[in-house]
Amino acid sequence: MTLYSIFEKPQAKAAKDRAPVAIGERFSWFAMLLTPLYALVNGLWLLLIFWIALVMGLVYASRVIGSDAASGLYAVVVVFLGFEAPAFRRDWLLFRGYQWRGDVISSAEDLAQRDYLSHRK
């Protein structure tokens, strides 16, 4: 079971039939292993820019600190990104005007949306 945060657009800005967004509070392997693709899929442009700057900085720093130390730093950062991926998505939704509507414990994202909608009415 996972805790899902439910976000919804205010009714004045959203279509009536638009489903709420559920974001699971769990580690994201997708964000850890394929950070640039994760950022593009979720529209997290600042995360993509950060990742590009990180890789370029580590390539440059590897000349000074060594490739093993640079690889270790990269591993630490991508594990951190895997843990923080839900927070990045939540912050991006809040920035885009979504409002937090509550938390739901469920086994899947679609079930969390269904449970939220069934208790809302």
Rank of each mutant, 00 (worst) to 15 (best):
L3E: 14
L3R: 12
I6M: 04
I6W: 07
F7I: 01
E8W: 00
K9E: 10
P10H: 02
P10S: 04
A12T: 11
K13C: 09
A14F: 02
K16N: 07
D17E: 06
A19D: 12
A19P: 03
P20D: 06
V21M: 08
V21W: 07
I23C: 05
I23Y: 04
G24I: 01
G24N: 05
E25Y: 04
E25A: 14
R26L: 09
S28V: 07
W29V: 12
M32V: 06
M32I: 01
L33I: 02
L33H: 11
L33K: 11
L34E: 14
T35D: 06
P36A: 09
L37F: 08
A39Y: 07
A39Q: 05
L40T: 08
V41K: 15
V41M: 08
G43I: 04
G43S: 00
L44P: 10
L44K: 07
L47G: 02
I49K: 14
I49A: 15
F50L: 02
F50C: 01
F50H: 02
W51S: 00
I52C: 04
I52S: 10
A53T: 06
L54M: 09
M56V: 10
G57T: 03
Y60S: 09
A61R: 10
A61H: 00
R63W: 13
I65A: 02
G66Y: 05
G66I: 01
S67C: 00
A69G: 00
A70Y: 03
A70S: 13
S71G: 12
G72D: 12
G72M: 05
L73D: 01
V77N: 03
V78L: 08
V78G: 00
V79K: 10
L81P: 04
L81F: 15
F83N: 11
F83W: 15
F83S: 04
F83I: 15
E84V: 00
P86D: 08
P86I: 01
A87P: 00
D91S: 11
D91W: 13
L94Q: 10
F95R: 14
R96F: 06
R96T: 14
R96H: 15
G97D: 10
Y98S: 07
Y98E: 05
S106K: 02
S106P: 01
S106T: 02
S107F: 13
S107H: 12
S107E: 13
A108S: 15
A108F: 03
D110L: 11
D110I: 07
L111Q: 09
Q113E: 08
Q113L: 04
R114P: 00
R114M: 06
D115R: 13
Y116I: 05
Y116M: 04
Y116L: 04
L117H: 01
S118M: 05
S118K: 12
H119F: 02
H119I: 01
H119K: 11
H119T: 10
